[in-house]
């Protein structure tokens, strides 16, 4: 049975667990614990190991969706889970303290996966906090990582269509990047 692992990462409170719940066709396996770090994200629980969901294709082939904890102190889970991953959906909450900085930092943290597969950015909670606009995320990526053409979408993690668009863009991007010829300046 073919399996494809997609990783969903992002800061605490970005909507990773919700995104997996939107996409998954099975009840999501979650590892939530009571959140004592209310200063970082004001929510009751937080993921401390992983979230897991599945999309089944053709009856047997599965896309496995793994959400990793947002806090850096759990980064061993990032390393464990990224090994088998095909690509990365990076969710960034627009109402964070420095959402663009968070994104740039996480792209660096997952650079091996980005280079091997690909990354797509989903900006959440832009209904709550209008700025920064998605164009600022795009400009920052182009400035710091000029070799990456990562899709940046504004998404609602509760919206299955949004999350499917994000996942599909990731797959197309991985496909196009892996078929692309080497660039050679004439």
């Amino acid at each position: 049975m073919a399996e494809h692992v997609i990783l969903i990462a992002g800061p605490m409170g970005a909507g990773k667990t919700t995104a997996i719940q939107s996409l998954s066709e099975i009840p999501v396996v979650s590892t939530e614990a009571a959140n004592t770090d209310r200063a970082t994200a004001n929510k009751a629980t937080t993921t401390v190991a992983l979230d897991y969901g599945e999309i089944t294709l053709d009856g047997v082939e599965k896309v496995r969706l793994y959400g990793v904890p947002g806090q850096r102190r759990f980064d061993y889970m990032w390393r464990i889970l990224e090994e088998r991953a095909l690509g990365l959906i990076l969710l960034i909450n627009n109402d964070g303290q420095d959402p663009v900085g968070d994104m740039l930092e996480l792209i660096k943290d997952f650079s091996a996966l980005q280079e091997r597969g690909g990354v797509v950015i989903g900006v959440t909670r832009s209904d709550v906090q209008e700025y920064p606009h998605t164009s600022q995320y795009v400009d920052s990526i182009r400035e710091v990582y000029p070799h990456i053409t990562a899709p940046v979408f504004s998404v609602d993690a509760r919206n299955r269509d949004h999350m499917l668009i994000t996942l599909t863009a990731l797959l197309f991007n991985i496909q196009a990047q892996s078929e692309a010829p080497m660039e050679d300046v004439a």
Binding site: A34, T46, V48, P69, Q71, R73, F74, Y76
Partner: peptide, 26 residues
């Protein structure tokens, strides 16, 4: 704590507490 913060520790490898605290939670 359930979400992986060290509350107290004892023993000879105290410097590893932070990492082990997170792993315990996971």
């Amino acid at each position: 704590s359930d979400d992986g913060f060290e509350v107290a520790s004892a023993g000879s490898h105290a410097q590893q507490g932070g990492r082990l605290a997170s792993m315990t939670s996971s």
